[in-house]
Structures are given as C-alpha cells and as structure tokens.
Design a protein around this nucleic acid. Structure first.
Lengths: 258, 258
DNA sequence: CAGGTATTCTGTAAATTTTACGGATTAAAG
DNA sequence: CTTTAATCCGTAAAATTTACAGAATACCTG
C-alpha cells in the first residue's frame, strides 16, 4: 500500500474491508552481532518509532492476518510467529494522533470519526527471524526502519513500549519450554553462536560446556563434519538443528534450565 | 441485564456503548469434590451450553471489562483472572446463530446486519475460584448454569470447546511457574486437599510426601494449630497460604516440578 | 472398651540432574 | 616457531528429585 490513492481509500473506507477497533502489532526479533534486535519502523513526519502492524480483514482468520502482515513488512514467510497478549487497557490508545496532525503530515483529509481514530485494541504477536533474510518494506506511513537493540528500544508510539516489554518477557519464559534458534540463526551455526544467542535472550551467562552438553543430550542439534573459518583462531565446527526433534520439542515442550 | 427493554436496547443499540467485533469469553475453573470444574451457562431456547462472556465498553480498559463481566456472572471480585489467548480463526464465528432463529427464540427483532451477528473475535480469560463463594447470575439469554467436569465438557457453541482446551493447557503450564490454589481452595485447607487439587489439575499422581515437602520448602503454606474433623479417621491439620510468599511467587514465578 | 478400618503423617537412601571448573588443541599472525 | 585468542572436552561435588513403608490417629463396630 504505497500510492496516495490506495492509502486514501484505505483511510476513508478501510472499515469496509478490515475489522475496526482491532489491530495487530508485531514484535520482530532478530539476532545480529551477538545482540537481540527488534525491528521498528519510523513514521513519516511524526518522527516517532513504532512496531510493524496492520489490521485484520473481515473474512480473514486471525492467524492468517498476522502472517500476512508480517509477510508484507518483511517479505518472509517461513518463521516462528506467536500471539502473546492483547493490549487495550488505555481506552484512548490512538487518541494521541490528532486527526489534524494526521492531515497535515500525510495530506489525507480525515474526519474526527474516522475509523482509524477510534479506540483500538492491539493483539501482540512476536516473531523470530534471521535478520539477513529479512527484506524490510516500508509503506506510505513509514519511511525508515531500523533494527534496535532489544534492551535499548526508544520511546514508541502509543503503548507499544509495553508491548515490547511483554514480548521480551514471553520470549524469555518460552525459552524454558520450547527450543528457540531455528528462526534466529543461519541454517548452519557454531556452538559459540547458539550459546551466545541463549545468553543474549536470557540476559545471563551460561556455562558453555554444560550448555552444549544439554543441547546435545536433548538431541536438538547435530554436529556436522564441516568447520567455519574465523580467522586467526581455532575453527569451530558447524552444527544444524535436528528438524524432527526440534519440531517435536516445539509441540511437546521441554523442561530445562540451560 | 434481564428486562426485555434493557435487552432490546442492547441488541439494537449496543454497538454505541460496546466495541463491536470483540468479545470476552471466560473459562471459570472451580474445584469441587476433588474434581476440576468449569462453569457453563445454558442458552435459553438454543439448548446449548456456552461460556460466560460479554463485550467491552467503549471507554473501558480491557482488564476492567473482564473483571466486570466476571463480577456480573459470579458476584465475585477477589479472584485470579488472566487473559490467555485470542480466538478468531473462524471468520464466521457467530454465523451459526441465524438472525431468524434468534428472533424466534428470544422475541427480539434483529436485522441481518445487527452488530451481534457480525464477525467477532473472542479474547479468552480464565479465572480460578472457590465454587462455594460463587453466586451464579443468569441473564436474559441464559436460564441455567452448571459446573461441568473439566474433562467432560459438552459440545459448546461456536468454537468455545477450543477455548476451554486452551485454557486447560494454559492452566497446566502455568502451574509450573506460579502458585495456584489460593483462589480454588477455602482459606484453610488440609494437605490432602491441596495435594488432590494439584493432581487433578495436572492429571497425574504426585507423591504425597514429596509434594508437601516441596510446598513447605517453598514457604508457600503454613501449618495451623487446628485440625479438621473428617469422621472416622485421623484428623488432618489445617494449613493456609503464606500471603506474602504467595504474592511474591505469583510475581516472580517459581521453577518446580511437584 | 478392644479391635478394625480408613486416613494422615513423617524420614531416608538411591538415582538423577545440575553445577563448577581447567587444560589441551587449533588456526592464523607476527 | 612462538604467541595469541578462540574452540573443545570430562569429571567430581553438590543439589535436587525420586522412590518407598510403617507408625499414628479418629471414629466405628461388636
């Protein structure tokens, strides 16, 4: 949705195609330079950062909507995506953007009763993805994107900081019950890489020997007969996830401590 | 909401006061005769059972809406209540009730475009309560209620069986991270009682000695200097929760296995 | 009132899991 | 060849979890 006509139609008549009062916000986690990152979009004119998001089509299953929105923003579809919370405790969530400001910034005439300015609950989803595979798409309302350090997210629009906080908490809790990494790491990775990933997500040190022992004992990863060259040091072996075991662990859950 | 006038106003004009397209469904767990129970309401005329639920007022924070709805149905307000999932994968969730049938059963004239018959997502909450404290209120649409065995819930309206399933799963997962029992047991309870409660929720046997050892070690419960008389057998001692420890565990979480 | 019955209650040893910890190996650079 | 910085590997101690049985109690019955 990029042309003025498309956008104008969406603003004026979107409520015919989309459910009003409900939006989807996506917290997209990536992993880069040993840092957990979150993808944010910059609102044109507003000079503020926000989460990628969108609305649900009237005849579209909720989960499909989330996938579609994510696909639109990242051009990715093979990913881990999970609903985690509904936010709607501040009844005037959207009130901050005044209609006048909206008109000035975007050149779109909107009335005070425009559907986009009504109260909107937001369903939070979080996604994990290998950031190098992501091809971020901005749209009419946004003109920039950036991967922000998860522990250093700027002030966001509306109550989205709360959304990010909750996503992080959920991710950290989840890591104790489900394997995580398949969508955040390249297909082949080294022990130090996955080790650092877990340390990063959990925000604490994990004994490297015990960690890999555990991972191997669970049968989640498999050692390959290849090594990566990392310059002036011993070459680490490459590993890959055991797809079947991984899927099984996703479904059935695991109990561990790392 | 019980009089015909009130209800008619709600049906015809409710969208002015409530957010359309979004409802709240409550899975209310109780504990009775060593069984985990779920509170269901019987729809008048429809001869079908469903979850207590309601809509969110336009200016009402989401969490307040959930509490209000629960309060309306059970007359209780001191309880454990938690959002757990949004359901909306079948776009025609409400389509099953035809407007004609609705008119016949309830004597309310509704047009096909009535707000209640539009697609509605449902936010699932689950609550835990001591069933003896509950004073169930039926309303215009429902004329009966019953506590059903959690493992033996009848076919419900719409996709509510899925909602119940997910609530149970969430409860079972949660019990590993949070103390549960405060809202399901009377203030003073015996070891065998709480033991059976946990066995019931988890659906498996727990060694009684190890279980109480663990509970005591966590400092969650406190032995009282009173006993309950249970007839022809040894009188069990009464216990109560350590409120502070319990609250703390609720916030910070616990890691255990029981 | 003595014996029977059904329930509560308590401790310890074995098995398992988690934790702690250091030194040998390797790849390239100097 | 030496140095440097990183990977890799195993074992012993500590902590936790599991398994398990018998004594005590309260009322009922004969």
């Amino acid at each position: 949705m990029n042309s003025f006509e498309e956008v104008n139609y969406f603003v004026q008549n979107g409520h015919q195609d989309y459910l009003p009062h409900i939006s989807i916000d996506c917290v997209i986690f990536g992993y880069q330079q040993q840092q957990l990152k979150i993808l944010l979009l910059k609102w044109k004119g507003l000079n503020g950062w926000g989460l990628p998001g969108g609305f649900i089509k009237r005849r579209e299953p909720l989960s499909e909507a989330a996938y579609r929105i994510l696909q639109e923003k990242t051009s990715l579809n093979d990913l881990f995506l999970q609903q985690f919370h509904v936010f709607g405790d501040s009844p005037y969530r959207v009130g901050e953007r005044s209609t006048r400001e909206f008109t000035e910034k975007f050149g779109l005439e909107v009335q005070a009763d425009n559907w986009l300015f009504e109260r909107t609950l937001s369903i939070g989803y979080f996604a994990l993805m290998d950031h190098v595979k992501v091809n971020v798409q901005t749209d009419f309302f946004t003109d920039d994107y950036q991967w922000w350090d998860a522990s250093d997210v700027p002030q966001l629009l509306f109550d989205q900081n709360e959304v990010v906080e909750k996503a992080l908490l959920t991710l950290r809790l989840q890591i104790y019950h489900q394997p995580i990494g398949y969508n955040l790491l390249p297909e082949k990775f080294t022990l130090p890489e996955i080790h650092t990933l877990y340390e990063t997500i959990l925000g604490k040190e994990l004994d490297q020997r015990n960690f890999s022992k555990k991972l191997m004992a669970l049968g989640l990863i498999q050692k390959l007969n290849e090594q990566r060259s990392i310059g002036a040091h011993r070459s680490p072996f490459l590993y890959q996830f055991e797809k079947e075991k991984y899927e099984q662990a996703l479904k059935e859950g695991i109990v561990h401590t790392y």
